[in-house]
Design a protein around this nucleic acid. Structure first.
Lengths: 142, 142
DNA sequence: CTGCTTGCAAAGGCTTTGCAGAACA
DNA sequence: TGTTCTGCAAAGCCTTTGCAAGCAG
């Protein structure tokens, strides 16, 4: 999925390149948000992103966080993960991978299972192509 | 996932049995909601469920629809599908199956792919078990 | 009776929007 | 100087909650 091979954490220069690669003009706010996102592979809500950017000493409005994350998602910079109905999570890891969601703790972790790539959809109608595959394994304590 | 082998549409008597099977006392409202859900395999939002039940000539409040769908989900009568960030969908088909989501049209369809059942999670921590597997293929026009 | 259910209205909480000012090319 | 972007505040919208009345066992 991700042909960019991001090596976390991303330096500021790399962040700017990344944004430009996706045809996003690198404004101060977008750079600061992206820098925070790509410190490491992580799953973050809009609120957490706002908090994180703010704690890093930068000032970005809530509306801009929402606008920016919508933009990043559309452009493919990050991936939306819908698991918790309470809020959307943004995944800074866009490599092909799946998720393990612990229903007891709410913890969301990445897993890599090459078998998933081999899945072929039976009877995929003509003229359609798969643009993304979301796989979430919900796990609980035994 | 579903060992009940529901044959759509479900008759009123079967609906009552179904609810009892899940230890849900069959109140008028719950029966009417379940009857609407199990007319056919479908993916419905709370609003659509309220509309449908109302149009069928029954009277149920919005709050009861939400309460009931929460109950049905917890008991395993239906499955929540989180795809659209706008709202939650409830799936009246609880057989093991996957979803095809057309990002252009918003259409959500069921697919059956036995290969998915074979997926084994690498490094699943001890003491955890998989309780559910959500697979969504996002497709678009070529 | 006693506890479970329902329904209304209000509150809650995440997200979007309108619009004026700022930044940018 | 025209376009894009930001930020504030308000609005929007889905969902939950408090609470009184109704219903079931």
């Amino acid at each position: 999925m991700n042909s960019l091979n991001i090596s976390f954490p991303l330096e500021r220069n790399d962040v700017v390149s990344l944004l430009q690669h996706f045809n996003i003009s690198p404004t101060r706010q977008r750079i600061e948000i992206a820098e925070f996102l790509f410190q490491r592979p992580q799953h973050l809500s809009a609120e957490k992103i706002l908090d994180g950017v703010t704690e890093a000493g930068n000032r970005v409005s809530r509306a801009t966080v929402y606008n920016t994350m919508g933009l990043f998602t559309n452009k493919g910079v990050v991936r939306e993960v819908l698991i918790d109905r309470e809020r959307v999570f943004y995944d800074s890891n866009t490599d092909a991978h799946q998720h393990l969601y612990n229903v007891d703790t709410g913890e969301l972790t990445d897993i890599y299972d090459t078998e998933v790539d081999k899945i072929v959809i039976p009877n995929l109608p003509e003229g359609l192509k798969v643009v993304d595959t979301d796989v979430v394994f919900k796990v609980a304590s035994e």
